[in-house]
Amino acid sequence: MTTEPGFLDGNAAAGDLESLFGADMTTAAGQCQGCGLRMRLAEAHAYLGGPGTVLRCPGCEDVLLRMVRSPNHLWLDASGLDYLRLPAAAG
């Protein structure tokens, strides 16, 4: 089985992620739980426009993060990331 890409780069999810984390997440970094690749979230593959926002690893295409916004809740699964490193607020 091969795959055909249909993604945007992680910057396309910047608005969604900033609304969740309250910080510019394009400079955030993380490590893929699947293959161990370390990356900036801006380098992740973003799938938007469907039921939710999906970020996938640019190395292995495993899901890094899923986010769904309902009228009353914001749902986040970031279990595909070993860690997420956010920029500290300017002091």
Binding site: T3, E4, G6, H45, G50
Partner: peptide
């Protein structure tokens, strides 16, 4: 066309 990942061939 809405996808949550790459299109498998």
């Amino acid at each position: 066309v809405l996808s949550a990942g790459p299109t498998p061939v």
